[in-house]
Simulated assay, not measured.
Amino acid sequence: MIAVIGAGAFGTALAVAFASAGRPVTLWGRNAARMHAAEGSRTIDRLPDVTLPEAVTCTSALADLAHAETILLALPAQQTGGFLGDVAGKLPDVPLVLCAKGIDAPSLRLQTEIAGNAAPGHALAALTGPGFAGEIARGLPTALTLACAEAKRGATLQHLLSGPRLRLYLTDDVIGAQVGGALKNVIAIGCGIVEGARLGASARAALMTRGFAEMSRLGVAIGARAETLAGLSGLGDLSLTCNSLQSRNFARGVAIGKGAEIPQGTVEGVATARAACRLAAHHGIEMPIAASVADVLDGNLTLDAAMDALLARPLKEE
């Protein structure tokens, strides 16, 4: 049995995908009765036109996860440490697969680093890459990255979690996979701002490209491999997230650029933007795009001032 903790859109989508591939799944949420549109229904609030397979069992009792082969943690990135601290000793001793994409704001740690501290003894992996929840749940072809430092355990998880329409590529670069997944959210907010403000496709392409350079600089500085950042979990996820309103980060940026009402829901890039800037400063890395996004989000810069500051930077080689 595969356990998924977190009954939001992405956690539920993964549960649907695993169950559709013939694997029993237990989906844990804080209130199991609210996981569906109506009690007794198999429809899903956050995933229209998707039906929860019978192979998915919903629960709010951690004891129901006792027989899991692995646990996927699909909570928002800023909740990972607190949740694992609260349930310390209550989870079975099986691998934890971290699915959130973000840098912990107080500690500047990646998700596996947070889990290693809060849940010592568990084998750890990270699942990341370009995949929208709605598309995964509907069975559309998706390729993701599974990062695990232990080759044998990673291969076991790769075969357990892959399916006919969900293909997982394995890497041992746990840092690189997570850096790409976290920082692309920040660049996606910036690209959304460009789109909302109607600054043009050329400006968005430039922001994506230079944003990728920033991701790569910081990633390599903290131990990532450049080729990982050029793969699914970096460039692939960046390309997806910066070009669709299905991305909450891109949608948040579009609303900011338009001066419109901000959409509700967790937007991982908001907390990660300032955390990334602090981490970059610690390592002496320049990230002007991430800094501008953070300043706009914090209200320290207007959109026009941020754009002027970026365009006024000294000319240099690419």
Rank of each mutant, 00 (worst) to 15 (best):
V4M: 00
I5K: 04
G6D: 01
A7W: 00
F10E: 04
F10M: 14
F10A: 02
A15D: 09
T26I: 13
L27D: 03
L27H: 10
W28L: 12
R30Q: 10
R34T: 02
A38V: 11
R42H: 13
T43P: 03
T57R: 15
A61L: 07
D64Q: 09
H67Q: 13
I71D: 08
G89D: 13
K90F: 03
K90T: 14
K90R: 15
D93N: 13
V94M: 04
V97G: 02
K101I: 06
D104L: 07
D104S: 07
R109F: 00
I114P: 04
G129E: 02
P130I: 13
F132V: 02
G134Y: 05
A137Q: 09
G139Q: 12
A143N: 03
T145F: 00
T145R: 04
A149S: 15
E150H: 15
A151P: 14
T156P: 01
L157E: 09
H159A: 14
L161S: 09
S162Q: 10
P164H: 14
R165E: 14
L168M: 00
Y169P: 01
A177T: 04
V179S: 07
G181Q: 09
G181C: 05
N185I: 07
V186Y: 07
I187L: 07
C191R: 08
I193G: 02
V194M: 12
G196K: 06
R198Y: 04
L199G: 10
L199Y: 13
G200D: 01
A201E: 15
R204I: 06
R210N: 14
F212H: 15
S216W: 00
R217W: 08
L218V: 09
I222E: 00
G223V: 13
G223C: 06
R225W: 06
A226N: 00
E227D: 15
E227M: 14
T228I: 11
A230C: 15
G231M: 08
L232H: 12
S233Q: 05
L235N: 05
L240A: 14
R248C: 00
F250H: 15
R252E: 05
V254M: 07
G259C: 07
I262S: 07
V267C: 04
E268Y: 00
A271K: 09
R278P: 04
H283V: 09
A291I: 05
S292T: 14
V293Q: 02
V296F: 11
L297M: 05
G299F: 13
N300M: 03
N300L: 10
L301Y: 08
T302Y: 13
L303M: 11
L303H: 08
A305H: 07
A306D: 01
M307K: 08
L310P: 06
